[in-house]
Amino acid sequence: MDIFLQQIINGLVQGSIYALVALGYTMVYGIMGLINFAHGEVVMIGTLVTISVAGFMIKAGMPVMLAGMAGLTAAVLVCMALGWGLERIAYRPLRNAPRLTPLITAIGMSIVLQNVAMIIWGRNYLTFPPLLPKVDFEFAGANFTAVQVIIVAVSALTMGGLLFLVYRTKLGMAMRATSQNPAVASLMGVNINRVIAAAFIIGSALGVLAGIMVGTYYEIAHYQMGFMLGLKAFTAAVLGGIGNLAGAMLGGILLGLIEALGAGYIGDLTGGFLGSHYQDIFAFMVLIVVLMFKPSGLFGEKTGDRA
């Protein structure tokens, strides 16, 4: 039982991170029907900027918490600019092109960003400065750290904030209107370009937050870290129903739990036939089964009523 609880905690933490990244995919997809494959790279760059800035500040003798905040602020600003720049340079000129074109561009941007990061930060793994104090807890035989608690709490708060933004503010309403019918939203006075840019900027900021969580959790970062994280988060978004915010959140957490429980129990369930290296397969099998019965994902709207 303590092991089961431990796996649930593992999954919840991992899932919170997936959920935050998945929100970035789903926001952009919801508004402009584009899968921004470069989102994982934005997360990566945010993490690396934090390392550089916070690392520099700590070396300069700043208190760790303050350096962390400075790193976070710098990373969020850089990545908001990056998200905005991506949209402005890579996607806006292709707004009316066939859907495949911006998709290919997105993959291209992802490769470009990876290589730029490799040039700036090098090929080696970087260690993330320990921004949070190391405190361990034990509960019913399960161990967890303060970092894990903070990750889950910050994710929940951030997601709550995002839901408030989208469902309770004017900008949020404009975003939803734009996602449903951009031409008419424009007639109502909504500047579509600004709303789309806002989606990119907010999504990027969420991504940075997720990246910093990954950094403080694993204490390492690498120029290729965004790829797998992005892929998993994208899967989570599809699992929950891409374009749907609640879907992305639940999809992320679900994926984290499936992975943890899959890795923990798949060997025992199959009598050792499948080992823990099949944990990804386990996650994708769940995805396939869900999509078989609900092609638009767990919370996805039917595509028919997209105006």
Partner: peptide, 13 residues
């Protein structure tokens, strides 16, 4: 203000 052909209401609002 234009009332577009086919109404153009936001279906999920």
């Amino acid at each position: 203000a234009l009332v577009p052909e086919g109404r153009g209401v936001f279906p999920r609002l």
